[in-house]
């Protein structure tokens, strides 16, 4: 299979034309800092470390927090489009890790949880990167809580974006009635798929992150 690709590559080289498609990845990670979920932020650092180890030069990564209103560039904790040169990309990754460490040390909780705003912001960021593979990771319990003035009940667009919900912990009420948890996830799946997302996945065990960027 690889040999065939190699042959195709040489043929393309002979024809003097490069592959116009973008093969880079762009990942936008939403980190929920509201309520009790704020205690889980340290786990988010592990996921970011995994992403930093997996992403290649030319890929993009951004981490944003989910607050009462998350549709804002100010909520982006760290972002980087890694340089094409591996040595420079490694240096950028080190800086990114330090920014994330600083965030996990000094984050503050929020009263409400605006996941939809974060998704819209993430979708815009990913579209701007022009990456071939776009992924939004939502590190949250997926319980959206909005204040009375915030409006989010309208259709959103997540075209060609994979949405992966990570570490969706069960709330106390979910333990009482698991249908609430399953119903919440199902509702999000419907909403994401209706928004044109390429895939919806839920990964609760952080050790199963291997396939998170496949695509």
């Amino acid at each position: 299979m690889k040999r065939r690709h190699f042959g195709f590559g040489l043929a393309a080289l002979a024809a003097g034309c490069a592959d116009p498609r973008s093969h880079s990845q762009a990942v936008y990670m939403l980190v929920d800092t509201s309520g009790t979920y704020a205690e889980e932020v340290n786990k988010a650092q592990l996921i970011v470390n995994y992403l930093l180890g997996t992403l290649q030069p030319g890929d993009s990564l951004a981490v944003a927090r989910v607050k009462s209103r998350s549709f804002s560039e100010k909520d982006i904790v760290a972002k980087a489009t890694f340089d094409n040169r591996p040595s420079q990309a490694n240096a950028q990754k080190r800086v990114f890790r330090e920014q994330m460490e600083a965030f996990t040390r000094s984050h503050s909780g929020s009263a409400y949880t605006d996941i939809t705003g974060g998704l819209i912001q993430g979708s815009m960021f990913l579209t701007e990167t022009g990456a071939g593979h776009k992924t939004i990771l939502i590190f949250s319990d997926m319980q959206e809580e909005l204040d009375k003035v915030t409006v989010r009940d309208f259709p959103i667009t997540l075209k060609d974006i994979r949405v992966v919900a990570v570490n969706v912990v069960k709330l106390r009420t979910d333990n009482v009635d698991p249908r609430r948890y399953l119903g919440r996830l199902e509702a999000w799946q419907k909403r994401v798929e209706a928004a044109g997302a390429r895939e919806w996945r839920v990964i609760n065990d952080i050790e199963h992150l291997d396939g998170v960027l496949k695509g």
Binding site: K2, F8, A12, G58, R85, P86
Partner: peptide, 18 residues
């Protein structure tokens, strides 16, 4: 890839650096 960049591809799996 340090000279010509690691992000350019000629095909889905063949990098320009290769």
């Amino acid at each position: 890839s340090e000279m010509v960049g690691a992000g350019d591809y000629l095909t889905a799996s063949l990098r320009t650096s290769e």
